[in-house]
Amino acid sequence: MLGWATVWSWFAPFLPAVVIVVLTVVVAWLVHVIVGRLMRPTTPQMAISARRLGVAVVALIGGTLALQALGVNATVLFLVIGLIGVTIIVALREPLSNYGAKYFSDIYTPFKVGDSILVQGVSGKVIEINAMTTVLLSENDQLISVPNVAMIRDVVVNTSPQAWKEVTVPVSIGSTVDLPTFESQLLKSLSKLRARLDPRFPPVLTTKNRTAQSTELVLTLMLRRPEDRDAITLEANRRLAEILEQKRTALRKPATPAQA
């Protein structure tokens, strides 16, 4: 039989690291909540990314401190992580800038697949927006690949008829959220904005992609007046965030997927 003293003598050297890990989890959770609240005025996509970044930074610091408590030299560890990071950034500068540009253009650039745009002197119908490039189909059936970074650096003209009317808001919901309930709540909430939206085009939620972890959707709103664009985008995002935050419990999926 092992005595308590023996168990304690084995466990004691690890105690500081365990305490740091526990504290890290608590701090990460706090950061997750606080950043989520601070980012509420922005888009849900931005809020999710900011939360993830905050949690990752806390986890990195906590993990490093825990390793230091176990006797690993943190200075060397930080140096190695830093060098790897710099190498990746330098090596992948172009792809990363395009990827980053796609992230921001998804949220802020007013065009989508199917629209006709003019950018860097070329024009065509957008047929694909991938991680690196936006692919246009020209009038003479040519494929034109435009780096995404151009979409946030250069002037982009959306030449689709009445393009100003359409506001698309990307929405990402976790797999635990019940999509029918979420959509129903969202439509109810957005109907309050009716006076500012085109009565012929009620809000529509379209599924773009689905994985085991999440569902990517796009909310489409059609404006009555062009000058409302910014305000409606912000208001729609605020309502989205509110539904996702405050009604998280209510949006849980029912026990049996086939039944309500």
């Binding site: 439509l187 109907s191 009620p202």
Partner: peptide
């Protein structure tokens, strides 16, 4: 005329989405 803006429409969408989710699964 304003049917697609009504509260009832959110329930109509709910039923159809529930159906689409089951078909997707």
């Amino acid at each position: 005329d304003d049917l697609f803006w009504s509260e009832a429409f959110s329930e109509y969408a709910y039923y159809n989405r529930r159906t689409a989710e089951l078909i997707g699964a």
